[in-house]
Computed example of a mutant assay.
Amino acid sequence: MSARHDFAQALLDPELPCPAGLVAWNGSDPARRFQVYRNNVLVALVDALADSFTVTRELVGEAFFRAMAAAHARQHPPRSPVLACYGADFPGFIASFPPAAGLPYLADVARLEYLRVVACHAADVAPLSQATLAARLADAGSLPGLCFGLQPSLAVLPSRFAVVSLWAAHHGVGDLAAVLPDAAETALVLRPGLEVEVIGIPPASGVFIEALQSGRPLGQAADEAMALEAGFDLAATLGLLLQKSAVTALHPALHPSGSIS
């Protein structure tokens, strides 16, 4: 292993000794200085997670969160110098973290919070103009074969738990005491302007939007949604996407041969 690898390993493992060969510019003990540096790095990683996962932190309390975040940081160091995006592995870590087993909804709340981080830093893509949308959607015959491009910030999170209500209550919307954590909810996350929004949507709407994201045409996406819920409201779901400027492209589906349908 390289000296760089040894240094990185020792930096996040308090059981490992100070890497060999380190010297301090002023002649002080390098092991003591390395321990200070090690502590500072861990605190910085924990602070970065605390900034991104505020509701997760509130749900478990400061001391529990910081201990859990430190355990995560030691197992999953950042792969980028941009700490604002650190934490992609944190929800999965929480799901397998034994001390958090009593809060089965905690991992999905963290997933929702990380989707907000991703949405915040997603690329800006201009939505289709209202005139273009109106013209394309007015042709009823071509609608089923239309494929949609959606904003890079958009994501859907179906959950067995009340993730939207829990997140909203911790931001002053609704009464936390009235939230039933085991009530399944589906979240739509997107950034229609400068602010990231979290919107509760019906499960069938989530299936429809995810199908559009995967490149399936409108007709097929609607069929998948109606297979889940016969009363799926296509007009309302499309209306929400248009209202939030989520549609960036419309084009006919391609046949496997490459021809346009």
Rank of each mutant, 00 (worst) to 15 (best):
L45I: 05
S259K: 14
L49P: 02
R111H: 10
E210I: 04
P181K: 15
P30Y: 03
A20K: 05
S129M: 09
L106S: 09
V43F: 01
A107M: 05
L180R: 13
A246P: 01
R79F: 03
G21H: 02
A110K: 09
N40M: 00
P127M: 15
M68Y: 03
A134V: 14
A236K: 10
Q130H: 14
A48S: 14
F65E: 07
G231Y: 04
A70H: 02
L238R: 06
Q9G: 08
H170W: 12
A249E: 13
S2P: 13
A48L: 05
R111L: 12
S52H: 09
A187D: 07
F97H: 15
A122V: 14
P217W: 01
R216A: 13
F208K: 07
M68R: 11
A134C: 12
S28K: 05
D175R: 11
V36W: 02
V189D: 00
W167V: 06
H72N: 06
M1V: 12
L250K: 11
A88N: 07
L242T: 14
A107C: 10
D175A: 13
A73R: 12
P217Y: 03
D29H: 04
P81I: 11
N40Q: 09
V82C: 05
M68V: 06
S142K: 08
Q243K: 09
S205R: 06
L240Y: 04
S259F: 03
L22N: 10
A69Q: 05
G27K: 01
E229T: 15
G193H: 09
L12T: 11
L176N: 07
A177N: 10
L137N: 00
V82R: 12
G92Q: 13
V173D: 12
D6M: 11
C18V: 05
L11W: 01
V41P: 06
A31P: 10
V117L: 08
F53E: 09
M1E: 12
L150H: 02
A119M: 07
A227I: 03
R4S: 13
L218T: 05
A222K: 03
E195W: 03
A119N: 04
H171P: 12
A204V: 07
T248S: 03
P78T: 13
P158Y: 04
S159H: 00
S261I: 00
A3H: 13
G61A: 09
V109P: 05
L45P: 12
V156T: 11
L157I: 11
L240A: 08
W167Y: 13
L190Q: 03
V173N: 07
L42E: 06
D223Q: 13
V189F: 02
V247H: 04
R191V: 00
V55D: 00
D175M: 10
P14I: 04
V36H: 01
Y105D: 11
